[in-house]
């Protein structure tokens, strides 16, 4: 009986040690890779999304069809397949990308397609009178779009855009499949040495949960601030 307790104690001591040893080892690629990957991809995705929404809203010939095609393809294919296509597929055409930039490209394009639809819906919800009033004070279409319509639309689109940012944080774990050493890949590597899958995968899940919880809190605070202006 006593032996059993000693064994259990030794076992849990080992687990606790592994947990704390690996916490930093998972956190560091989290801060150095997962977070930059998320922030860079999300920023680029916003630019893509605004451009894609604008060419549709302004009925720019040709480009608006390109925009629809892009959204159709990206939203209709799995993210993992897109990662493989760019990282393993493109070298066949002589385009060789490092894992990190390949991941940035795919995450930006993927998130951009979803954000474009959110922003487009938000732009369309801005009353037409805003555009007309802009014309009447002498502004051009582009001036009205960037000064009046887009700021209002981004406010409306804030909740769905925050959600897409939070999804992106989690989706970056897929980059492990194309050899980007982000948090999940780092966890897999530790596991292959110590073989504690239950502990380690629960641990990395916990860290994702912390990241997302922080973002959700930030979102709530900002939404409250924005609501004051409505």
């Amino acid at each position: 009986m006593a032996e059993f307790f000693i064994e259990t104690f030794k076992l849990s001591e080992r687990l606790v040690t592994i947990f704390f040893d690996s916490f930093g080892k998972i956190m560091i690629p989290g801060i150095k890779v997962t977070i930059p990957l998320t922030i860079i991809s999300f920023s680029i995705s916003l630019v893509i999304a605004v451009a894609t929404a604008l060419v549709q809203y302004a009925h720019v010939p040709v480009l608006r069809h390109v925009a629809r095609f892009y959204i159709w393809v990206v939203r209709g294919t799995p993210l993992l397949v897109q990662l493989f296509l760019i990282f393993f597929g493109l070298p066949k055409l002589g385009i060789l990308l490092n894992p990190f930039p390949a991941a940035i490209i795919v995450f930006s394009l993927n998130t951009g397609a979803y954000d474009a639809e959110n922003i487009r819906a938000a732009i369309e919800s801005v009353p037409k009178g805003q555009l007309e009033a802009g014309y009447c004070v002498g502004m051009s279409y582009m001036q009205i779009f960037f000064r009046i319509i887009l700021p209002q639309a981004l406010r409306t689109a804030f909740p769905p855009l925050s959600n897409s940012l939070i999804s992106l944080v989690k989706d970056t774990s897929l980059a492990a499949n194309i050899t980007v050493v982000e948090m999940f890949m780092a966890t897999q590597r530790i596991n292959s040495r110590v073989y504690e899958p239950l502990l380690l995968y629960a641990e990395v899940a916990l860290i994702y949960l912390i990241f997302c919880t922080v973002l959700t809190k930030v979102q709530t605070v900002w939404e409250r601030k924005l609501r004051v202006l409505d």
């Binding site: 009178g129 009033a133 009447c136 004070v137 502004m139 051009s140 009046i148 202006l229």
Partner: peptide, 25 residues
């Protein structure tokens, strides 16, 4: 033009509404 339903720019303050035609346009 003055509209029936005002159409003030909702993302701008009263002063910015008045000046945007000067500064931007």
């Amino acid at each position: 033009f003055v509209f029936q339903n005002y159409n003030l720019f909702r993302n701008l303050t009263a002063l910015q509404n008045v000046t945007v035609g000067l500064t931007v346009a």
